[in-house]
Amino acid sequence: MKKYSCETHIDHALDMHVAETEEYPMMDMLKEEEKLSTKCSYCKELATYIVSSK
């Protein structure tokens, strides 16, 4: 499971990941080239982070 998040929604993305998967989430910064086209999973802002299980 992967969720993309802007600065505003990162806490929500981490909480939702734990609630949905019951696993510890990993949070990574998106690469500069990925930031240009990746939208937040919760709003229309550009994503800064990716939350996933590794």
Score class of each variant (00 low, 15 high):
residue 8 T to A: 03
residue 53 S to C: 06
residue 20 E to C: 15
residue 16 M to R: 09
residue 48 T to Q: 13
residue 53 S to N: 10
residue 18 V to D: 03
residue 50 I to G: 00
residue 42 Y to L: 06
residue 46 L to G: 12
residue 29 M to R: 10
residue 49 Y to M: 00
residue 35 K to I: 07
residue 19 A to M: 14
residue 54 K to D: 12
residue 54 K to I: 12
residue 25 P to A: 11
residue 34 E to G: 08
residue 4 Y to G: 01
residue 49 Y to E: 07
residue 53 S to F: 01
residue 33 E to L: 04
residue 15 D to Y: 14
residue 11 D to Y: 12
residue 1 M to T: 06
residue 31 K to A: 15
residue 45 E to W: 01
residue 48 T to I: 11
residue 25 P to S: 08
residue 9 H to T: 06
residue 20 E to D: 15
residue 10 I to L: 13
residue 36 L to Q: 06
residue 38 T to Q: 04
residue 50 I to L: 04
residue 33 E to I: 11
residue 25 P to V: 05
residue 10 I to Y: 00
residue 7 E to C: 02
residue 49 Y to Q: 05
residue 44 K to A: 06
residue 12 H to K: 15
residue 2 K to T: 05
residue 18 V to N: 05
residue 32 E to L: 00
residue 3 K to F: 13
residue 30 L to V: 09
residue 2 K to E: 10
residue 6 C to Q: 00
residue 32 E to K: 12
residue 26 M to K: 04
residue 42 Y to S: 15
residue 25 P to H: 09
residue 27 M to C: 13
residue 41 S to V: 14
residue 21 T to H: 07
residue 54 K to E: 15
residue 10 I to A: 08
residue 39 K to F: 09
residue 20 E to R: 08
residue 46 L to N: 12
residue 21 T to Y: 00
residue 49 Y to G: 04
residue 3 K to N: 14
residue 43 C to V: 04
residue 5 S to H: 15
residue 26 M to Y: 10
residue 29 M to G: 11
residue 42 Y to I: 06
residue 1 M to I: 10
residue 49 Y to C: 03
residue 49 Y to L: 01
residue 47 A to T: 10
residue 11 D to S: 13
residue 54 K to W: 06
residue 25 P to D: 03
residue 47 A to L: 07
residue 17 H to I: 13
residue 23 E to T: 00
residue 24 Y to K: 13
residue 6 C to E: 05
residue 6 C to A: 07
residue 10 I to C: 03
residue 29 M to E: 14
residue 22 E to K: 11
residue 24 Y to W: 14
residue 2 K to P: 07
residue 32 E to Y: 02
residue 1 M to S: 03
residue 28 D to W: 07
residue 7 E to W: 02
residue 47 A to V: 01
residue 30 L to P: 08
residue 7 E to S: 01
residue 23 E to D: 02
residue 24 Y to M: 14
residue 50 I to D: 00
residue 48 T to M: 10
residue 27 M to V: 09
residue 23 E to I: 05
residue 10 I to F: 03
residue 17 H to P: 12
residue 39 K to R: 11
residue 50 I to V: 02
residue 6 C to S: 05
residue 5 S to V: 05
residue 13 A to C: 01
residue 35 K to E: 13
residue 15 D to T: 11
residue 13 A to Y: 12
residue 48 T to V: 14
residue 28 D to E: 02
residue 19 A to N: 07
residue 44 K to D: 05
residue 29 M to C: 15
residue 45 E to L: 09
residue 18 V to G: 02
residue 50 I to N: 00
residue 34 E to C: 00
residue 2 K to S: 11
residue 46 L to M: 08
residue 49 Y to T: 00
residue 15 D to S: 07
residue 19 A to Q: 08
residue 22 E to T: 06
residue 38 T to S: 15
residue 24 Y to V: 13
residue 28 D to G: 01
residue 36 L to D: 11
residue 52 S to W: 08
residue 30 L to G: 10
residue 1 M to F: 13
residue 42 Y to W: 15
residue 49 Y to F: 02
residue 33 E to M: 04
residue 12 H to A: 14
residue 48 T to P: 02
residue 29 M to I: 06
residue 14 L to G: 12
residue 40 C to G: 10
residue 23 E to P: 04
residue 7 E to L: 05
residue 23 E to Y: 03
residue 25 P to K: 14
residue 50 I to K: 00
residue 47 A to M: 04
residue 52 S to H: 11
residue 27 M to N: 15
residue 51 V to N: 12
residue 23 E to S: 01
residue 20 E to I: 13
residue 20 E to F: 09
residue 45 E to V: 07
residue 22 E to V: 09
residue 8 T to C: 08
residue 43 C to L: 01
residue 16 M to T: 03
residue 22 E to Q: 14
